[in-house]
């Protein structure tokens, strides 16, 4: 099998994607920023930065801190709010030429529904990804740490749209499997795993946290082993495609996730330090799939042999 003849297409619900390479929400801006570096339309899909009902200014600086092989962030979901977003950015996003996955975060279960309903009236949206690990939520609940609430979010959004729904789960749980089962029962067509791991860096001389808001989320290559395990657990538990996220920076990382059980992979933090990472991964996949003796990406998904 030559690398050129590999079928890279994958399926999420009724949506067929030309290839499994996507971008992690919050790391890809509006997508337009990457156009100088490569043709974004080549990606299987693009996930944009989280949108909320109202505008958000974002968190006080410092918002970022580096750690060995990783990044701690507390950005705070800055965005212009749904109406301004639809008016200002959506027309440009439609021109990207890659299936557009809109990432939304609600401050309540109902909020998720309101956002989905608003976007569902617009053309050019391929799917929704639900950011269920937003720390700023009504009643202090994180939507992806309690199965019952997670299911409610999916049911509420499902009631508003027939578009594929991808539930993005938090890794900050004792066991991710019951959450995965709950979102599938609620109507999720796929599960994204994982969001960032909560963490903190300290400046002991100042007796202060490094980040302006204290705690943040850890991303980057250092979280890859944690993400891989959670992808595997979900793959073994639910019957929907898994979108693997966590420290993916090259085609070998992407292959690790596909073999572990992901059908789609998202490139996140690597977009910052290797802006062409997603394209490089896409170009590196066919030869690697061929090396496994497979002719399509679907043949290798989840083929990991656990001891």
């Amino acid at each position: 099998m030559t690398a050129g003849a590999i079928d890279l297409s994958v399926q999420i619900g009724a949506l067929t994607l030309a290839n499994p390479v996507s971008t992690a929400s919050g790391t890809y801006g509006k997508g337009l920023e990457f156009q100088p570096f490569y043709d974004v339309s080549r990606l299987g899909s693009v996930v944009v930065k989280t949108i909320t009902t109202e505008a958000r200014a974002g968190n006080p600086p410092p918002r970022l801190a580096e750690l060995p092989g990783g990044l701690l962030n507390s950005i705070g979901l800055p965005n212009p709010g749904v109406e301004a977003y639809i008016e200002t950015y959506l027309p440009k996003l439609r021109s990207l030429g890659s299936p557009l996955i809109i990432n939304i975060a609600g401050h309540s279960v109902d909020d998720f529904g309101v956002l989905a309903a608003r976007f569902a009236r617009e053309d050019g949206i391929a799917a929704f990804e639900l950011n269920m690990s937003c720390p700023n939520v009504a009643s202090g609940l994180d939507y992806s740490t309690q199965p019952k609430v997670a299911r409610q979010v999916l049911e509420r959004v499902r009631g508003e749209t027939d578009l594929p729904l991808i539930a993005k789960l938090s890794p900050n749980v004792t066991d991710i499997r019951p959450i995965g089962e709950a979102v599938v029962e609620g109507g999720a067509d796929a599960i994204s795993a994982i969001n960032t791991l909560v963490g903190m860096l300290v400046d002991w001389r100042r007796r202060r946290p490094v980040l302006g808001r204290g705690y943040g989320g850890v991303s980057g290559p250092c979280i890859k082993p944690i993400a891989l395990r959670m992808v595997r657990l979900l793959f073994e538990t639910v019957d929907v495609p898994i979108v693997g996220i966590g420290g993916i920076q090259d085609a070998d990382d992407a292959m690790d996730f596909l073999v572990a059980g992901a059908s789609v992979i998202q490139v996140g933090t690597a977009n910052y330090y290797r802006p062409t990472a997603a394209l490089d991964i896409l170009e590196g996949l066919p030869e690697r799939i061929a090396a496994l003796g497979a002719t399509s990406v679907r043949e290798i998904v989840g083929t990991l042999q656990m001891p």
Partner: peptide, 27 residues
């Protein structure tokens, strides 16, 4: 100068505060 993640406007990690013509302060 600010601590930056990307340098081209996608990470939103390098905010500074600027006074707007209407007197408000924005990142």
């Amino acid at each position: 100068e600010e601590y930056m993640g990307c340098g081209f406007g996608v990470c939103f990690g390098c905010p500074l505060r600027q006074r707007q013509p209407d007197g408000s302060v924005e990142y």
